[in-house]
Design a protein around this nucleic acid. Structure first.
Length: 225
DNA sequence: CCCTGATTCGC
DNA sequence: GCGAATCAGG
């Protein structure tokens, strides 16, 4: 497999999302964990908490002992000041959950580079571009979006057994959850999902530079494996 | 042992 | 640029 733009995007997104190299490799498929790590580094992605961090463990161990190294090029890193302070995690002032009517007009971020969008996989497993994935989700807002079912049962849910060629198979929720079910709408002829969900599942890769109103990615949160 | 990421270096 | 081999810490 080669590193297409899409795959690189996914790699970035996943990497920054905190997935391990193994997970990413598995998800992308066709690449090894090492490949992912190697690529990540080449991309300049920085290692998050890496288990192995020798402060100044002298790297004098030429691993090349086994392979016939032709010319042992001495690779000494010249003085490298102290570039560490990458991005200090700005203490996010917890957005006061209290009614904070968002300012009417949020000035669009001046720099909105990185067009590109990938797509949202079923179940909310995201696949998106670097432009927006910052979503800091941390202070779980007292959200309570679940429309508490009026009836004790989820009677009208579409279960796995109810799936046919004609109904939308878009998963609602996550497998394993009590109310996990499927959309159940009429499918968009020729697709496994209804029209609405087709829109989610198949986001056309618009030509670069095209403006792109990022869809309100409902960040429900993919399950961490 | 398993896992993790980091690094090196032949290709 | 790529990634296997290797290192090294948890």
């Amino acid at each position: 497999m080669s590193w297409t733009d899409e795959r690189i995007d996914q790699l970035k997104a996943m990497w920054e999302k905190g997935m391990t190299a193994s997970q990413i490799a598995e998800e992308l498929g066709g690449v090894s964990r090492n490949a992912v790590i190697g690529k990540a580094h080449r991309l300049g992605l920085q290692s998050r908490p890496s288990p192995v961090k020798s402060n100044d463990a002298p790297r004098k161990k030429p691993v090349a002992a086994k392979k016939p190294a032709a010319a042992p090029a001495a690779k000494e890193k010249p003085g490298q000041p102290a570039p560490s302070p990458a991005a200090a995690p700005a203490p996010r002032a917890p957005a006061a959950p209290a009614a904070q009517p968002a300012p009417a007009a949020e000035p669009q971020a001046p720099a909105a580079p990185q067009p590109r969008i990938v797509s949202v996989g079923p179940g909310g497993f995201l696949r998106q571009g670097p432009g927006d994935q910052q979503a800091p989700i941390p202070p779980a807002p007292p959200r309570r979006l679940v429309p508490a079912k009026p009836s004790p049962e989820i009677a009208d849910k579409t279960s796995l057994l109810d799936l046919t060629e004609k109904i939308c198979k878009w998963p609602i929720g996550h497998p394993g959850e009590p109310d996990f079910h499927f959309c159940g709408e009429k499918v968009n002829p020729g697709f496994p999902y209804c029209v609405e969900h087709c829109g989610r599942a198949y986001q056309a890769q618009l030509p670069r530079g095209t403006r792109r109103p990022p869809p309100p990615m409902p960040f429900g949160g993919p399950r961490v494996r």
